[in-house]
Design a protein around this nucleic acid. Structure first.
Lengths: 248, 248
DNA sequence: TATTAGAAGATTGTAGGACAATCTTACGTA
DNA sequence: TACGTAAGATTGTCCTACAATCTTCTAATA
């Protein structure tokens, strides 16, 4: 049987380009800078100088500037007329707005996922959940960040709507640093693991109503936490409140 | 120390820039190219050559290329590795996905608008509706496009969520050409006028459920029309079906 | 001490050229 | 006649260098 529909591995991560040379330099630069912002190497509000970035990345200014335009369009940096690029810093209210938008987009994606129930997406979602379980005890925050991003990315992809997935990817990039900071709290992570598993099961069961309810609860919880982190200046604020699960 | 955080009347509309010089050249170039794409001067699928664009806009290649990156991030053009920028051309399925996303975002914005009912936004919405009424008989398609965009932009702004408004703006830019083509049909425009008025009244009345229902019906109607236009190759296809109002 | 003027630094916009990759076209051979 | 190959041309990409403008720091003076 000539079953060639296998492999090709097109569903690895996200953008797959045919061969090794089909990726432009500015894309690589944008990826590097995006990662630096997401992981907090460049702090929110920090002034970026093109000269330094050129030395750090090893590319020329035109390439760097084109990469900066991409990041600017994604909302990760903002450029003032003659003051250079600045790493975007969110206010608590902006976090609320972002999470409100995320709830609308992501719960819709999850519901569509639960409605379509495409086998391949289900398998991928289970694989990302297994990856999360493997990291549960000994995973670093960066590993957890990437595994969680894979989970949410799979949900977005499972909606079958590429534009929805693209919007969610951009939104997640904007809040990735907050998530990264939050992932340093291991006890809260356990609650998130439980929620993600329940959400996955609701999707696989095709229960759209339950999916929406669980997603709303989950986002309310982590949205509140995100606001707290930003209010503390993008740092873990070891709130005096000991351990109120507060899933609402 | 010196904390003068008094208001500077920054909340007029959206982005307020101090004087006339605070806009970069690449922004102007991006605006010009965006308008050319939206109004169909550059047809979907058309190959764009940087050299020609440099001559048309009168700017150097670096500035032009930075503008192209902005448009690429907005989804208005796509750049293949060594084949230059191409004006994005939507497939019928992509139109369906875009309108599905638009329904999610815009109906949420309208519901938030109806919930908040901020007087300033209500006044602006009424003004845009009046502008539409004034253009009802003698407005050109381009004038109608801009007036309709102002209506939808006001709805998005009325949600109070700037990120939601920004996402909707980008989405509207992608479908503007389809709307522009559709606006050449005067008889269909009347139906749209009626729908827009009803939707405005539902918002002002604060009736979120009615707002959602009307928005769903409206987007279903124009989404079907949009798909038809794309199927006809971005042209009015004078469908044989005479005049089924089809508000469902 | 407060205000203003000047200079230094940085960013932006622009120009030109070199290098690499791809597409087209013409020619030779089977 | 059809096909494969090679050369030319076009296009895209990247780099260096320079002019113009704005910000900001510093210093001098009222």
């Amino acid at each position: 049987m000539d079953e060639h529909e296998d492999q090709l591995d097109v569903m690895n991560d996200g953008s797959l380009l045919v061969a090794g040379q089909a990726v432009s330099l500015r894309s690589l630069v944008a990826d590097r800078l995006r990662l630096a912002i997401i992981t907090g190497r460049f702090r929110p509000g920090q002034q970026l100088r093109e000269r330094e970035l050129c030395e750090l990345t090893g590319v020329s200014r035109p390439s760097l500037r084109e990469a900066l335009r991409v990041l600017e369009a994604e909302g990760l940096i903002s450029t003032m007329p003659h003051r250079g690029p600045v790493v975007a810093a969110l206010t608590p209210d902006e976090v609320d707005h972002l999470y409100a938008l995320r709830l609308v987009l992501e719960s819709f994606a999850a519901r569509e996922f639960a409605r379509l129930r495409r086998p391949h997406d289900i398998a991928t979602l289970q694989a990302t959940m297994k990856r999360l379980d493997d990291l549960r005890e000994s995973g670093t925050p960066l590993e957890l960040l990437e595994a969680g991003s894979a989970y949410y990315r799979t949900v977005a992809s499972g909606s079958g709507n590429p534009y929805l997935a693209q919007s969610l990817q951009a939104l997640h990039n904007r809040i990735a640093l907050i998530r990264f900071i939050s992932l340093h709290e291991r006890d809260r992570n356990r609650l998130t693991f439980t929620a993600l598993r329940a959400m996955m099961e609701a999707i696989i069961a095709g229960d759209e109503a339950l999916t929406e309810r669980l997603w709303t609860e989950h986002l309310a919880a982590i949205g509140t936490r995100a606001r707290t982190i930003v209010e503390a200046g993008y740092r873990l604020a070891d709130a005096s409140g000991a351990s109120t699960p507060s899933a609402a």
